[in-house]
């Protein structure tokens, strides 16, 4: 095994494989379920799934790196999905992004040093009337300003640290 291969508990995949392994064209679904289980797609999981679904690892990797939903590294405790759709862009999403990046000292796609936040910009969350919008985990925050975004993050941080 190579140095960046973790040792994941592969038995967690049993149910998923039972349901989908033999269903043609289910690779994406299987990867989605695997990511739900592990929070991301560890390398050994990808190899294991390749073996179990009859695909080559290159093929599974090709799919896993094609879609933005899949992550090959763990994410922070809170995933910030900042919408960069047209409406959000027109209403100042760039400034919000800059404020978040400055506050967390990270760039898009990175995780903050304390592991609390990961930032991912997304194409459109479809809440255009509330633009600019971000989702943190399951919650949506609309009509953002740079200040408001930082306040929200500060609040979550305080809650996490408490």
């Amino acid at each position: 095994m190579c140095e960046n291969c973790s040792k994941s508990d592969l038995t967690l995949l049993n149910d998923v494989l039972k349901e989908f392994a033999s269903v043609r064209g289910s690779l994406i679904t299987i990867l989605q379920k695997a990511q739900e289980i592990y929070g991301y797609l560890p390398v050994d999981v990808i190899y294991y799934l390749a073996e179990k679904t009859g695909n080559t690892p290159a093929k599974v990797m090709g799919v896993a790196t094609f879609y933005t939903q899949f992550r090959l590294t763990p994410v922070g405790k809170n995933l910030i999905m900042l919408c960069k759709g047209t409406a959000c862009h027109v209403n100042g999403a760039d400034a919000v992004e800059k404020a978040i990046c400055d506050y967390l000292e990270i760039k898009d796609g990175e995780t903050s040093a304390d592991g609390l936040f990961s930032l991912k910009t997304v194409a459109c969350l479809g809440c255009c009337s509330l633009s600019p919008v971000m989702m943190i985990n399951e919650d949506t925050y609309g009509s953002l300003t740079p200040q408001k975004a930082v306040e929200i993050l500060t609040e979550i941080k305080a809650r996490e640290e408490a």
Binding site: K84, T86, G126
Partner: peptide, 10 residues
């Protein structure tokens, strides 16, 4: 529905 700025289908 991927167009940024469209949410009719949703």
């Amino acid at each position: 529905e991927g167009d940024p700025g469209a949410f009719m289908d949703r």
